[in-house]
Amino acid sequence: MGRKTNVVLTVGAAGVAAWAASKVVAKPVPREGKKALDFDNPVILAHRGGLAEAPENTLAAFSKSAELGVHGFAVDIRLTKDEEIIVFHDEFADRTTDFSGRIADYTLSELKMADAGYQFEDEDGNHSYRGKNVEIITLRELIQKFPHMLIVINLKDSPDTYEGSLIPSKLWRLLEELGAEDCVAVTSSYDEQTDRFNLYAQNKVATGAGDNEVKRAYASFTSMFGHLYSPRADLFRIPEKLGVFSLGTESFMKFLTQINIPVYFEGVNDNESFVKLLHVGAAGFITDRPTVAMKIVQDNVGD
């Protein structure tokens, strides 16, 4: 046996010893649960109100989904020129019928004059329409209209922008004023944004994992040291796949469930995916098609 072989075996043995020692010393610590995420059955959240079934981000869409019996909504928020928080997906105002340029270039009163509804399909899924005579709504209006619904709020503005630097504090002040701390969860693809928000919220509001946190969790899961993973968020909202990596597996769900992290899958709209993810342990769905989702869950989950 040569010197190189001895070195490799020694390093390998040291790695195994470190892993064994860490298994003895460290145990997975479950994340403390948040009231907003306390559900007995899988949660259905209408994405932007159910954008495939009604004009997205409008009161018409949210009301229609609420009548179906969904548990809540998943929305994006933006900050206007006069620092009001509106429910809107894109950075650019051309998703309305009347304006162009950035949302941050207009005041709330100006945006209220636009037809806000974008496109959705008819019942046969054949045509798209723009909603007419539908108004942009503020996050305040949405929470006040549906005070008992879970609203998963996604901070869209980049932390590097002026709007992004302000919105975490603006959001916290609004939630605190409305007493809505226990009926929302705050997410962002930018981990920095939820960290900033939590500086104000001090763990009083459920927060979601950003892109880097999801990658960190998955890397821990696939390594020998998954038992050392300590989550920095209360909720994972993730796609079924992240590049070539499949996140919708029973083993990954079990890994997160044992540390009390519910997983809401987004972008799920077809029957096959709903059923598959229910069976691997999905805690919820963020869907464009709440009608389909409600039926699938009712048919596949016992009372």
Rank of each mutant, 00 (worst) to 15 (best):
T58N: 08
T58E: 12
R31P: 06
V25G: 00
L79C: 05
S22H: 15
E56N: 03
V29E: 15
A26M: 01
H71L: 09
G49Y: 06
V43Q: 13
V25W: 14
H71K: 04
V24M: 10
V24L: 12
V24S: 03
G50D: 12
P28H: 13
K35D: 11
F62T: 03
A46K: 09
K27H: 13
H47R: 10
I44N: 05
A61L: 01
F62L: 04
I44H: 06
S65D: 01
V25D: 11
A20C: 12
I44E: 07
P28A: 11
L51C: 14
G33R: 02
R48G: 03
L68S: 11
G50S: 09
G50H: 12
L59P: 08
L51Q: 06
A46F: 10
R31S: 09
V24C: 03
S22K: 12
S65C: 01
N41M: 11
R48P: 02
A66Q: 14
P30F: 14
E56R: 00
N41Q: 13
V75F: 04
P30N: 11
D38V: 04
V29C: 07
A36M: 01
K81M: 08
P28S: 12
R78E: 03
K81G: 09
V29N: 13
E67I: 01
A21G: 13
N41D: 15
E56W: 11
E67Y: 03
L37Q: 05
I77N: 10
P30R: 13
P30S: 08
H47V: 07
A36H: 07
A46Y: 10
H71I: 00
L45W: 02
K64I: 00
A61D: 15
K27M: 07
A36F: 08
F73S: 06
A20T: 13
S63W: 11
D40H: 08
P55K: 01
A26V: 14
G50C: 03
